[in-house]
Design a protein around this nucleic acid. Structure first.
Lengths: 150, 150
DNA sequence: CACTGAAACCACTAAAAACCACTAAATTCC
DNA sequence: GGAATTTAGTGGTTTTTAGTGGTTTCAGTG
């Protein structure tokens, strides 16, 4: 099972292609032969999520199974399923990010790729740094988190 | 079973024809030989739903079976059944959207086609982006959704 | 019989995908 | 520590395919 860690600054070229860092590329080759799924993040942060294809299968199944007469559930479905795109790395180890995803996450040239265990997050560099500066007074801590000792 | 994913920006021409993106077109050919049903969405979002014909058969059966002394149920029946139109792709892979459906969903030139698993949603681009920017404070989260780890 | 509107057909343009070559950076060996 | 070799990253070019728009033909209607 994959285990993506660390953050990488990467550039997207004029055609919307972005070179996956070599380290990450190796992990992806091993895990899924370079077959990945890129989709939108469901919460309010406008970033993209990059899954190895077999990992996304679980996500897809879970999201499809939600009761879709509920408004929040429909929103999640539209965001996750409605943006999910299967992609493959090109001969140089790059992926072409579809225009709809590019504009959803407001991606321009400078991006950040953030390892998050079974998946990676893809942010516009600007938004990533802005998010780092934010504080999070509003929400409550789940009980499992209270018990952590890091 | 079909599995529509991802979003596509597409244009409708002056005759009301819209070109189904090649990826989606292939799936539709395989699933139902290009025989599809287009109908209205039942919830408050004014978009259209695009089903492979055999998948719509299930929907039709379920909706017909609803007890229709209830106002909400009657509304659902009128919207879904009353707008359902069977269509086929033309030689160039396009469908002609009937005028009533066009005006129901306020479709103009720029549209978005959104994969939602067994079906696709068709939105006016303007409305889709407006919906994306909405927040959804009002409704409650179903328990299955609380438990998700994506 | 003429006219209107829709549907099928056909041709062209533009965009995407695959291919290829170069530059820059890092690592290794002398 | 410096030079050489390998590898990562970048950009451009060509080829194919997808998308768009117009034209003709057929059917229905006044």
């Amino acid at each position: 099972m994959s285990n993506f860690l660390g953050s990488h600054a990467i550039n997207m070229d004029a055609k919307g292609r972005l070179a996956i860092p070599a380290r990450v590329r190796e992990e992806l080759q091993e895990e899924c032969g370079g077959r990945i799924v890129l989709t939108a993040n469901a919460d309010e942060e406008r970033c993209l999520l990059l899954y190895p294809e077999p990992v996304f299968e679980n996500v897809r199944t879970q999201v499809l199974a939600l009761p879709n007469m509920n408004k929040k559930a429909r929103r999640l479905q539209r965001l996750i399923l409605g943006h999910a795109t299967q992609l493959e790395l090109d001969s140089a180890g790059r992926v072409l990010v579809p225009p709809t995803l590019r504009s959803y996450a407001r991606l321009e040239k400078k991006l950040m790729l953030i390892g998050q265990g079974k998946k990676l997050e893809l942010w516009s560099e600007e938004r990533w740094f802005a998010w780092l500066d934010e504080s999070d007074d509003d929400d409550e801590m789940p009980p499992q988190m209270e018990a952590l000792s890091l």
